[in-house]
Simulated assay, not measured.
Amino acid sequence: MNFHKPTPQNIWKGRLSDEIQYWYQKVKCLETFLSENVNSKKKIALLGYAVDEGVRRNQGRVGTQFGPDEIRRTMGSMAYHLPESMEIQDFGTFWLDDSDLEGVQKTTQEAIGHLLENNYFPILLGGGHDLAFPHGMAAFHYCKSRNESLGIINLDAHFDLRDLVHDQGHSGSPFLQILNSAKNMNSSMKYFCLGIQKASNPSSLFETAKTTGTWWLENEACTISNWEVVQAQLEAFLSQVNKVYLSIDLDGFSSAYAPGVSAPSPMGFSPDFAMKVLEYVAKSKKLLCMDVVELNPKYDIDHCTAKLASRCIESTVRKMWE
């Protein structure tokens, strides 16, 4: 299939153990693009999005195409605390060598839709945040077919509600594209962004956020000491939707914790705050799918950003099944 390549099993490594104690021992890499395993049991699907074109179009620093495999390398050695019966399958990576962002997004959307229909919990590994467009649209169509409402929760320093450039999407436009697509289909969708930094979002984007009905919390409010306020906002948002697509943009974290991103900032939120949000969303029982995006290994220090991405994934799915 165009844009797709399987993941070699040997990328998943960890401490030797006779018993299942680490993630690498549970992940099965499949040569075929999608599994024929269609049983009703919930399963985890890992899928990479090694695409830099959206970041390039948005004038960011490229290198996110190396993110998916770097996350896999750090995930392998994590201790495993999910049910022993859980199936975790790695369906490979979508990659792009040229500028056909729209083509790879179409294929990605179709793949995520297939996974959702076959009772997988998709975890997408980015890659630029332009991944959110195909990911969000796949989740939207899945929910719409079941007469359910979808909410998007995005941990991010940016709204990512920018206009298209030369009629083309990019890493700064995905949520506007999703909201406009839903509107064009006479449907609505709710979008909540936590971690917004005023220095990174001009006033025009705040106006766009208002006109699209976007919910947001500015970075200054995203602290553990303010958790009661944050929790109340999350509770209000979750009460209005049936399912949630969760997106974690690593540039929302302070660069003290996440230096290896496309757009670093020292003013982002901390891991302990993000983990509180992830736990709350996971335990809502409404989480449908998730992604972690904007890892740029070229600028990482001691793999700490990749490890942070892996911890976000592990913590979320562990809380889902506790």
Rank of each mutant, 00 (worst) to 15 (best):
Y22H: 14
R15V: 08
V104M: 12
S284V: 05
R61M: 08
M1W: 07
G63S: 01
F269V: 12
R61H: 13
A236I: 06
S40I: 07
I248N: 08
D69H: 06
T32V: 13
S40Q: 15
L205I: 06
Q197H: 05
A309C: 10
A111K: 13
E110M: 04
T214C: 13
G127I: 01
E19K: 10
K144P: 07
K286P: 13
K307W: 11
G126V: 02
Y24A: 08
P266H: 09
T212R: 08
P202R: 07
S40V: 14
D302I: 05
W95M: 07
K307N: 13
V104H: 04
D272K: 12
S181I: 01
D163C: 04
K198I: 06
S40K: 15
G128D: 04
A138M: 12
I313R: 01
E31C: 03
Y24K: 00
K28P: 03
T212V: 03
A111F: 14
E294L: 00
S262P: 01
I153L: 13
A45P: 03
T208L: 03
K144F: 04
R56I: 13
G169S: 00
H303Y: 10
A309E: 10
S149E: 11
Y245S: 10
N226T: 06
K42Q: 15
M78C: 14
D90R: 06
K13L: 10
K26G: 12
G268C: 09
D18Y: 04
N147D: 13
K183M: 05
G268H: 10
K198F: 04
H170F: 00
A139C: 15
D291F: 08
Q168W: 08
V27N: 09
C304V: 15
D52N: 08
I152M: 08
R318D: 13
T212G: 00
E294Y: 00
F140C: 09
Y49D: 07
S262T: 13
D156P: 01
A199P: 02
C304F: 01
S225W: 02
D98S: 13
H4A: 06
S17I: 10
V55Y: 00
G169Y: 06
K243R: 15
H170P: 08
H141F: 13
I248W: 02
G113V: 03
L287V: 11
Q9G: 07
Y191E: 01
E70K: 15
Q105D: 04
N39R: 07
H135W: 06
L96K: 04
R146G: 02
S35Y: 12
H81P: 01
D69W: 01
E70Y: 02
N186Y: 07
N201F: 00
P122F: 02
A138E: 10
E53S: 03
L176E: 08
F237C: 07
K319M: 05
K276Y: 05
R311E: 14
E322D: 13
G127K: 03
E218L: 03
S77W: 06
A132Y: 02
A50I: 09
P8L: 14
